[in-house]
Simulated scan of single mutants.
Amino acid sequence: MTQAPDPVEGTPLIEPSSTHHPLHDEVVEACRSVFDPEIPVNIYDLGLIYTILISDDDDVHVTMTLTAPGCPVAGEMPGWVQEAIAGVAGVRTVTVDLVWTPPWGMEMMSDEARLELGFM
Rank of each mutant, 00 (worst) to 15 (best):
P103R: 15
D57R: 14
T11C: 10
T101V: 10
G87L: 08
G75N: 12
G79S: 10
E26L: 13
P22C: 13
P22Q: 15
T95V: 06
V27N: 08
A86E: 13
V34Q: 02
R92W: 09
F119P: 01
Y50K: 04
A30I: 05
P7I: 11
V94E: 05
V60T: 00
D58I: 11
D56M: 06
E116I: 07
T95Q: 11
M108C: 10
D6L: 10
D36E: 13
L46P: 01
D59H: 13
V8D: 07
P37R: 14
P78R: 15
V73Q: 14
A74C: 11
D45G: 10
Y50C: 01
E15F: 03
D36R: 14
D6M: 06
C31R: 02
A113F: 03
V27A: 08
D45W: 05
V60N: 00
M64T: 00
P69I: 10
M1H: 08
R92F: 05
H20L: 08
D56G: 07
P69G: 05
V94T: 07
D57P: 01
V88W: 10
L23P: 04
V60K: 00
S55E: 02
P69A: 13
V8N: 04
H24L: 02
T19I: 12
V96Q: 00
L13G: 04
D45E: 14
R114F: 00
E38M: 09
D25N: 12
H61F: 09
A4M: 12
L48G: 04
I43L: 09
P40L: 11
L115Y: 12
M109E: 12
P78M: 14
L66G: 05
V91Y: 05
D36A: 14
V27D: 06
V81E: 02
G118Y: 02
G10T: 07
M106Y: 11
E112I: 02
D111F: 11
Q82R: 15
I54E: 01
